[in-house]
């Protein structure tokens, strides 16, 4: 039997490939999720009832169903209904983006609501429009307060991408499964897979501390 070290060294190329796929999933999904979250968050703080309703419905549906069910629904369910094939990677990105977008929407909503009414009034009394007030006064302040909560959500989403192994995307967790199915070395491989996730997440949280200090709330 090979030594543990040899097993790990042999597995590294495939695991690194999986890590690249995972990083790709994370970056693309989180960018889309931030856009969806911002739009939905703005809708949920809008004066328009219909916009608020749509945002609430979206958040409720996503938060009220398990991510794995959402992944299966988009990958297996939607193609039946639409009569078209959705590639696993695309389905995975859609599912993760929609899922994280709902939680990020709530972060934006809470952040926007945390800015005092006096800030809105001061901006509006100068003649700034509602939109300018949001963009120039409210969001810059709210976003700074939201950084730690965003990072928390990002970390959860990073770990959520491991669920995409269920639809055969060759991301980090799936790579681990593939290796173990041929060499049966669960201890070494799951250990290394775990360490890879740990490294990604620790790097992210250190980076966020740095950003937080840099843009400290005034």
């Amino acid at each position: 039997m090979d030594s543990s070290l040899q097993v790990i060294i042999d597995a590294l190329p495939l695991l690194l490939e999986g890590t690249v796929v995972t990083l790709k999933l994370i970056v693309i999904s989180l960018i889309i999720a931030m856009v969806i979250g911002l739009i939905s968050g703005l809708m949920s703080t809008s004066l328009n009832r219909l916009l608020r309703l749509v945002a609430t419905l979206y958040v409720d549906i996503i938060r009220g169903t398990p991510l794995l069910v959402q992944v299966y629904f988009i990958y297996f369910g939607l193609p039946v209904f639409l009569d078209m094939r959705i590639p696993a990677m695309t389905a995975g990105i859609i599912a993760i983006s929609l899922n994280a977008g709902a939680y990020i929407s709530e972060i934006f909503r809470a952040g926007i609501n945390s800015i005092s009414n006096g800030q809105h009034e001061a901006a509006r009394s100068l003649g700034l429009t509602r939109f300018q007030t949001m963009r120039l006064v409210v969001l810059p302040q709210a976003t700074r307060r939201m950084i730690p909560t965003f990072v928390n959500q990002f970390i959860i989403t990073i770990k959520d991408t491991s669920l995409l192994s269920a639809i055969g995307i060759a991301e980090l967790t799936q790579s681990g499964e593939i290796i173990i199915s041929s060499n049966f070395r669960a201890f070494e491989i799951w250990g290394v897979v775990g360490i890879f996730y740990l490294i990604i997440i620790v790097l992210l949280s250190r980076a966020s501390r740095f950003i937080e200090r840099r843009y400290a709330i005034r």
């Binding site: 800030q119 009034e121 001061a122 901006a123 509006r124 009394s125 100068l126 003649g127 429009t129 005034r218």
Partner: peptide, 20 residues
């Protein structure tokens, strides 16, 4: 009203300066 407000300055009890 946005146009009109540019012609009417307002000062608040709590100052409401933009802290950022």
């Amino acid at each position: 009203i946005d146009q009109l407000r540019t012609n009417v300055g307002m000062v608040f009890q709590q100052f409401n300066l933009f802290p950022h």
